[in-house]
Design a protein around this nucleic acid. Sequence first.
DNA 1: CCCTGATTCGC
DNA 2: GCGAATCAGG
Length: 228
Amino acid sequence: MAMEWTDELIARLKELWEQGLSTAEIGRQLSITKNAVVGKAHRLGLPPRPSPIRNKAAAEGSAKPARTRTRKAEATSEAVEEKAASAALAKPAEKKKAAAPKVVKVSPAAAEEPAKPASVKADRPAGAEKPAKASAPKAAAAAPAENPKAAEPAARPAAPVAQRKVAPPRRVRDTIDRTLRQGPTCQWPLGDPGTPDFHFCGATPLPGKPYCAEHAAIAYVKIRDRRH
DNA sequence: CCCTGATTCGC
DNA sequence: GCGAATCAGG
């Protein structure tokens, strides 16, 4: 069986779709591929969202081929023709598709949690990485590294979220994106990073601050208070 | 390269 | 019906 689109799954798809999440992200949250998301969305007749590649032909209104043929389609057509032609010659027209090897993809569905409340969790404590490429650390320092003019961070929490040596994995970015989308939360870290219990405060932060009132009070200590 | 959604078509 | 492969654009 391919996949079981349960009512709940469909409902979640619709919901996320309406929320404007990208297909790939919906897929990640549902532990399916973006292709599955798009395909299902179409079959469900969900309102298509602005595509990066809208049909130019439609926009121009000129006599352009309404739809573009995929390479596969062309290949197939040719293959069919050729096959038909060579049929008379009893030519075996071997396709290298016999027992398509390729890499057996492990279903991601069973691997990870089907769907959890968007809890921020420490991501992959271990795991070898590719030292070759290391793009700029986009991940914002979630730890109290802020330093507003009139104040400076005094007490640091146990440990700032570990600085990443390499580019943050997709998962991390997704989590960040999700958080941003769903609204800011207090970024005060609690617990030891890397351990299962590590998490961020999550409370509603003060306007313009990464922390809630409680933690902002700890994070920001007036210089004057310090010097005097 | 990364990403996006759209489409086709073998299964 | 499903979704991988592919396309096409940013």
